[in-house]
Design a binder for these strands. Structure first.
Lengths: 197, 197, 197, 197
DNA sequence: TATGAATGAGCTTTCATTCAT
DNA sequence: TATGAATGAAAGCTCATTCAT
């Protein structure tokens, strides 16, 4: 479906608008708990009418997924930087935990989507593509020593463990954020340590 | 507060009624996503008026927590049996994953409570007590070799990892339940293997 | 319908029970706002099951009316004492306002019944009988100077005025109970003064 | 905040819609007891969805207060006309009683708000402002003869008395509206007469 | 007489989404 | 493109009253 330059420009503009809305969404998500965010909040933050959201996104969920993917992209970027700089398993684990602990909204979104069985095929596919990209990065930690297959398994294991740490301890009772983070990193190191042996 | 046999019988009956409601709740939870379950659904499933629920439970959340605790108790029981029978890390990991994979409703409840920051103090305490009991069991896997402290850390690490596996792969795209379970167990073994070295 | 001594005793006992319930009701009414009082609260205060209330009273409203009548009786009694002691219009007005200001629950009930158009004929009649008794007392203030008729009119006028003062100023904004009472009495005196001229 | 004509027009339209809802509310209030009026009834009467009510009013209470203020404004307007025309205490009293007797819904609302201790600060202030305006008018009846202070006291006294007459006799048993009104006016005259002496 | 169980009717408010303009 | 208006579906909790025992 080839498109003339006009159409392309329009597309570009539309994309720019979408981006602005997603920007707003990210801002809202970072200041309100995930399940309290309403379409109207995002619209207000973006300075537009809430009805207009539906010109750019088919429904609430699509916008939310988009916002999450944006955040996930950042996570992967950060991860890549660390890996490019030669970080090892332990460092990566700590940074990952630190990052998501400090950007709780992304973690909330991620678990939300992981639990939600009602995602449309297309959104699910985008989410998975993102997950694969993240696993690709993690896999670099395990070289090709035991073969691709093995490295992939370990990447999965590490990813799962880090997610597990985050979900298991994020509401650790009676501790403040600082202590919780310390504990999570300690557990993270314990696991990472096992993977380096 | 001593009570005669009559009073005790009444208490027992009342508890039996509560149990029936919790039964119904479990059934509903296993067929609907956690945040779609309404008090009325459970009442209907239990064959009673929704108002009657409030005769036995102070509010929705208490009933939900109760339903979850029931399941958690079973999990811990199963875990204990395996440990009593001398099961090792790998076996425990696989059984844990198997059990929660087959009782998805409990897992969904657990993550829900882990994510939810709005639990009342009393309910939170009951949830935490249950978590401690579970960790106590897991801790048995790590003896006292490196000291209590170390064993506790490993128990935390294993628990977190297993939770992570479940949340990360339970919606693995394009695979059926059987395949997903196989994959989760494989990852589980990979982690367990690391802990036994 | 003549009744044997047994039946009479039963009747007496029943009446005693009713009284206990009404006692409880009065206590509850004096500590909770009228429209927050529930049948269960009264039952709990009386130490009985809420269902039992319905053995002694046909419905909530009847019990409420009964409780009010009890209070109204006290008001009339107090009024009578003052009048017997030779109190004048001004004194009576002040005492009336003081009393109902300090027993807000009765005033709330009274206005409630005055506004409620759905009272059953019987209850309405009992309420009215009580009102007539109260007016009889007030009427004593106006002697027979201008004739019975005139005295009755003045009694009505004074009663209405006092009620009006209470309802109009009881929530006077930004004043505490003490100040409000002072203001009400001041207005009361202004009116009473007019009636003595 | 200057606004163009378009914005002003929109505002006007919105106000018009609000007015239609308040109209409906008044109609409903005049046929149902105050505490039986539900948002849905008003919506149905206005021919709109009940959710739309919340587009125009923040909550039920605000709408109710608005409806009352409308009526109170009319009362004050009527009062002012009479006073401008030179009416004396007696006439004013009779007209006031007549008006509120014929617009019972306003009287019920007024007493409701006078009894209700749970009004939000802002609404309370609007109510009080209205009451002050009404008292300002009544005060004109008493000139400055005895000083401002004294005139205010008498205004309060008259207002309270009229309110008291309405609440005390509106449900006078066994009389029809016509007779009741006649009685209320008679009592009103008795009081007014006292104030003119 | 006395109780706990049980019910049904009730009611406000929220919000994603759609529509007319 | 952009908006405000409009809607419907939802959902938890309360409480007087009745009923079975």
């Amino acid at each position: 479906m080839k498109q003339g330059p006009m159409a392309r420009m329009k597309e570009t503009e539309k994309q720019a608008r979408r981006d602005l809305i997603v920007d707003a969404a990210e801002r809202v998500f970072s200041s309100s708990p995930f399940d309290r965010v309403r379409v109207r909040d995002i619209a207000r933050e973006a300075g537009i009418s809430h009805a207009l959201i539906y010109h750019y996104f088919p429904d609430q969920q699509s916008l939310f997924v988009e916002a999450f993917l944006r955040g996930a992209g950042e996570i992967i970027g950060t991860l890549k930087e660390h890996l490019d700089a030669g970080a090892g398993i332990e460092t990566v684990t700590e940074r990952f935990i630190e990052y998501l602990s400090g950007h709780d909204q992304y973690f909330r979104m991620m678990t939300h989507f992981m639990l939600d069985g009602n995602l449309s095929g297309e959104l699910l596919e985008r989410l998975n593509a993102m997950e694969r990209r993240l696993l690709d990065q993690l896999q670099r930690l395990f070289g090709d020593a035991g073969g691709r297959e093995t490295a992939r398994i370990y990447a999965h294991a590490l990813f799962a463990s880090m997610n597990g740490i985050l979900i298991t301890f994020r509401n650790y009772p009676g501790r403040d954020r600082e202590e919780v983070l310390r504990h999570m990193k300690r557990i993270g190191r314990a696991i990472a340590g096992r993977f380096t042996k």
